[in-house]
């Protein structure tokens, strides 16, 4: 009944499968838009920085444990093969070992929980903000109300249908362009009030580390404070119907002067 692993054949099979995929992937690497981004977008707010660091910390801890555990397992698969050792040992428990490998993970988890708790407390503190903007999700656009400045407008997808239907070449910011950007000053603590008018949406801009559900009838709060001027793009992150994939968010972070000028311009219209 027992059969020995026909390693040669298996290895050839593996190679046969990987090769075509690698080739397909390779052709891509040379194409114009190749990005192969592996990780978070570049963080530009205190919150996004903390998230990034926390994410990397947990990731590396997990990788280390993984390598250790499966290092041991693969060693065992290799060294304790039947072809090498015909007879199995017969132990079936060890209280000492089990206590150790229960306690160590607990300690590791505590080590993860402490920075996470600190980060969370910091993120939830929306007090002492410099300005407040109310964001409302609609099927399928966003509405921005600057509560301190009496500015109020909608912002919707600008990518033309022809690009979506593959009748025109896709531009650089395909699906991530809107008619009116959300303009924010840098280095100000901005409080965002998030709600929705019809179904649940979620307002998300990865580089800001800001994601919150927009729930009809309720108001959620987050805050953000952008370090660097620039344009940051995000998308609705909660399934909200047929055009859920087509309600992007674009944030222009500008200097305080530029922001004031923009406000001036808006209110005088």
């Amino acid at each position: 009944m027992m059969r020995i692993w026909r390693s040669n054949r298996t290895r050839r099979a593996v190679a046969g499968v990987i090769a075509p995929i690698a080739v397909a992937a390779g052709t891509f690497a040379s194409s114009a838009h190749a990005e192969w981004a592996l990780n978070f977008q570049k963080p530009v707010t205190p919150i996004a920085h903390i998230q990034y660091d926390l994410h990397m910390l947990i990731l590396w801890i997990c990788v280390a444990i993984f390598v250790l555990v499966f290092g041991i397992m693969f060693y065992s698969l290799f060294a304790h093969r039947k072809s090498k050792r015909a007879h199995a040992a017969n132990f079936s428990h060890s209280t000492k070992a089990e206590v150790i490998w229960t306690v160590i993970p607990i300690l590791i988890l505590i080590g993860m929980a402490i920075p996470s708790t600190q980060a969370l407390i910091m993120m939830e503190d929306t007090t002492a903000s410099d300005m407040t903007i109310k964001i409302t999700g609609y099927q399928w656009k966003w509405r921005y109300q600057y509560l301190d400045n009496d500015i109020d407008y909608y912002s919707a997808l600008e990518t033309p249908r022809s690009q979506i239907e593959n009748n025109a070449p896709k531009e650089e910011h395909y699906l991530l362009e809107v008619d009116k950007h959300l303009v924010l000053p840098v280095n100000k603590k901005i409080r965002l009030l998030i709600t929705a008018n019809d179904v649940i949406h979620a307002w998300w801009v990865p580089a800001l580390g800001a994601k919150k559900d927009a729930i009809p009838g309720f108001i959620n709060e987050i805050w953000t404070q952008i370090d660097e001027p620039g344009t940051y793009r995000g998308q609705c992150a909660e399934l909200c119907g047929k055009d859920h994939g087509f309600m992007p968010i674009v944030v222009d972070a500008v200097s305080e002067d530029d922001f004031n000028a923009w406000v001036q311009n808006q209110t005088s219209q």
Partner: peptide
């Protein structure tokens, strides 16, 4: 996901094309 692609979307921005 890390690079920012939401789930439950039928179409996506160009930086997600390769993967």
């Amino acid at each position: 996901g890390l690079a920012g692609m939401p789930r439950r979307i039928p179409d996506y921005a160009l930086q997600f094309a390769e993967f």
